[in-house]
Design a protein around this nucleic acid. Structure first.
Lengths: 243, 243
DNA sequence: CTGCGGTTCCAACAAAAGTTAAGGACGTTG
DNA sequence: CAACGTCCTTAACTTTTGTTGGAACCGCAG
């Protein structure tokens, strides 16, 4: 199994976001990783569970979500290869939300013990991972703004543009289209609207010639209109090297 | 100036959340802190600025927020004494949101350099602070759920209960009432609704005999009803000592 | 005390989003 | 290829929330 390819995705991401050194990259190369394959729509860790590993996405999409007692679900973030969506479990031992796959996925598990001892040995790496969790938090902040202040069509546009920007970094964009493997139900859960309303909004963006969305794939028809609608300022992604 | 009292609030919080040792507490006691007083409604750090210090709240309330181009503002979190609302600026150098006071406040500034060298010297403390930023992120996740999935009255109830739970830790509750120094405009900005609607919702909770809210002070009239409405599960606050 | 600015409060109306229900498209499986 | 399930689509109707505009209240400065 190409566990090297898995690490490569992570290192590539860290390199653009934190300016990792070759030496530190080496440390990460050496991390023992247990690879597992998951089908689509499978929980990886559940709310309330106590995690012992962190999971690096090698292939496929994942999402984090919370479900409230009345059964409603809110999607908190969408994750792509190279990301470690549950890095927070290293210090927040019991999960306060769910992590599950959206598509069939290949995940690499790294034990908390391994990560902790790497941190103690190499504070540079610790700070890089710390920074990673801070960017995660920055994305949550923007997600709050999205759900709290933008009208539904802008919310959808914003999520699309954010996802596109992140996919760009790992070269997963194909011309004007990219994967966004959510059902309309899930889009609703991400935007804080119902599936019926999500459908209305998707239809509207299609009729206005902004984006086409079918079977989990987005095709941008009018980039200018999309960006304007999305009200997107990517600073919160903190993608430029630390300085 | 009682800068000792300032540190005490922080250490108390870290003690309950992470189980800090006396030795590590000593390190924090020794941190050089520059105390400044702020009037109400004053920016502390602004979106886009490059921070060089972190700020510890000694007295008063602060809030973090983001403003989007159309002028709408979203409040992301409310902060109370003992918290370091901009700890994230240590590694995310340019701010992606605003931090400002809600009330007159006393803030203690600790330079990034000082904090970074403390981290290098003492990984325990680093991990504690890291954990602190992770709890911060956990609160954002719950805030997303609040704004995305709950009807407006439940949103208000939830914010109130969360604030109460956190004020409890620092002993700032007086019987059934506590401070929540937000105008109705700001409550709207926190809940993702308009000020007019915030007013409607506040009125409703008052008429239903759940809470009274006047001049920045909440008085709980029916605790059971409030908790039920708020749909509150405090696990996300991760208040119990580590594991 | 008087007037001022910022809140709070409210009503009437408009728009956005939720609910319910049902038909159609599509892919999978027996 | 028939049958089933999942997802998408739409319509009609209800509820929630936003908008506009204005009155009452309150603390404070002159």
């Amino acid at each position: 199994m190409a566990t090297d390819a898995i690490r490569a995705a992570l290192i590539k991401r860290l390199r653009t976001s934190s300016g990792i050194s070759d030496e530190d990259a080496g440390e990460i190369e050496a991390l023992p990783i247990a690879v597992r394959h998951f089908p689509a729509e499978k929980p990886v860790v559940r709310d309330g569970e106590r995690a012992t590993d962190c999971c690096l996405i090698a292939e496929g999409f994942c999402a984090r979500s919370k479900t409230i007692p009345n059964g409603k679900r809110q999607i908190l973030s969408i994750h792509i290869p190279g990301e470690i969506p549950d890095l927070m479990s290293l210090f927040l031992h019991v999960m306060d939300h769910d992590l599950s796959t959206l598509t069939p996925a290949t995940l690499g598990f790294i034990s908390h013990d391994t990560l902790r001892s790497l941190h103690r040995r190499n504070p540079n790496v610790a700070e890089m991972f710390w920074r990673d969790t801070l960017v995660d938090a920055a994305m949550f902040r923007e997600w709050i703004v999205n759900v709290g202040q933008r009208p539904a069509p802008a919310r959808l546009a914003h999520v699309m543009v954010e996802l596109r920007e992140r996919l760009k970094l790992i070269g997963q964009i194909d011309g004007t289209s990219f994967d966004m493997p959510l059902t309309q139900e899930q889009i609703g859960e991400a935007l804080g609207i119902t599936a019926v309303h999500a459908n209305r909004v998707i239809k509207q963006l299609r009729l206005e010639g902004i984006v086409e969305l079918q079977r989990g794939r987005v095709t941008v028809l009018d980039d200018r209109k999309l960006l304007e609608l999305a009200d997107f300022d990517g600073r919160y992604l903190h993608q430029s090297p630390v300085l």
